[in-house]
Nucleic acid binder design. Structure first.
Length: 212
DNA sequence: ACATTAAGTGATT
DNA sequence: AATCACTTAATGT
C-alpha cells in the first residue's frame, strides 16, 4: 500500500510529508458505483486518490444531477480543501465510477501541513488551479450553447478516466449526465461520426480522436 | 415470434 | 436546443 502511495506522490511530496501521510492516513477501498460523499455530509477526511476514478456531481433546484468533473489517481478534492477551512459541509456528491482506492487524511492535518510543507502548499494550490481551469472550460462551452463540444469532451474525459477508448454507454446515459435529451445527443453523435471523431455500435462508443 | 430497449428522423416550438 | 411522435434496428426471452 505504501508502494501505491509512493508511486503516485513520491515526486510531489517531500520525504517527511510522505511519512506523515503514511502515519495519519487510512486506506479506503470502494466498489464501483458507490456514493462516497453526499451533499450536506460532514467532511472529516481529505482524499488522495491512488487508483480509480470518481465522478463529482452537483444538483440543481429540481434535483437533476449534473456532472462537474472527474477525479483520478494523483488528484485530490478541491471542494474538501475548501470546506476544511471553517468546517463547512459538502456541496457536492461524489460517486465512484470504477473501483477506487483512496488515502484518507484527517482534515486537521491540512492546516498544519500547509504551514510545515511547501510541497503541500504547492499541491493544494495546484489542485485549485486545475479545477478552476476546468470549470472555466465548461462555463465556456455552456455559455456558447455548444452541446456538440460538450458531448465530445464528455466522451474524451470518460475515455481518459476509464483508461479505454471504447466506452460501454448509451446515448440516453450521456444525455442524463449532460442534462439534455437523448434525441439531441443522438444527433450530435451522428455529426461526430461524420467527422471521424468517434464510431459507435449499440451500447458502445469509441473515441477515435483525442485532439480537437 | 414477441416484447423491450436503443437509436434514427421529421416536424414543431 | 428541446420536445413530440413515430420508425427502425438490435437484443433478450
Amino acid at each position: 500500500m505504501e508502494d501505491l502511495l509512493r508511486e503516485q506522490y513520491d515526486y510531489i511530496f517531500e520525504e517527511e510529508l510522505l511519512k506523515e501521510i503514511l502515519k495519519d492516513g487510512l486506506v479506503r477501498k470502494v466498489d464501483k458505483g458507490v456514493c462516497m460523499i453526499d451533499m450536506g455530509d460532514e467532511l472529516t477526511h481529505m482524499p488522495l486518490i491512488l487508483s480509480g476514478a470518481i465522478k463529482i456531481v452537483d444538483e440543481d433546484n429540481e434535483g437533476r444531477e449534473y456532472l462537474l468533473y472527474y477525479l483520478e489517481k494523483g488528484d485530490s478534492c478541491a471542494m474538501t480543501m475548501n470546506c476544511c477551512v471553517g468546517g463547512k459541509r459538502s456541496e457536492i456528491r461524489a460517486i465512484s465510477e470504477t473501483p477506487v482506492i483512496i488515502y484518507m487524511i484527517p482534515i486537521q492535518r491540512m492546516d498544519e501541513w500547509l504551514i510545515k510543507y511547501k510541497s503541500w502548499r504547492a499541491f493544494v494550490l495546484d489542485s485549485y488551479n486545475s479545477r478552476l481551469k476546468e470549470m472555466l472550460e465548461t462555463i465556456d462551452t455552456l455559455a456558447f450553447h455548444n452541446m456538440e463540444q460538450r458531448v465530445f469532451k464528455y466522451l474524451k474525459d470518460r475515455a481518459m478516466v476509464l483508461n479505454s477508448a471504447e466506452l460501454e454507454i448509451t446515448h440516453a446515459q450521456i444525455a442524463k449526465d449532460l442534462n439534455t435529451s437523448r434525441v439531441v445527443v443522438s444527433r450530435l453523435i451522428k455529426k461526430l461520426i461524420l467527422d471521424n471523431k468517434i464510431s459507435t455500435n449499440r451500447n458502445q462508443v469509441e473515441v477515435l480522436k483525442f485532439s480537437a
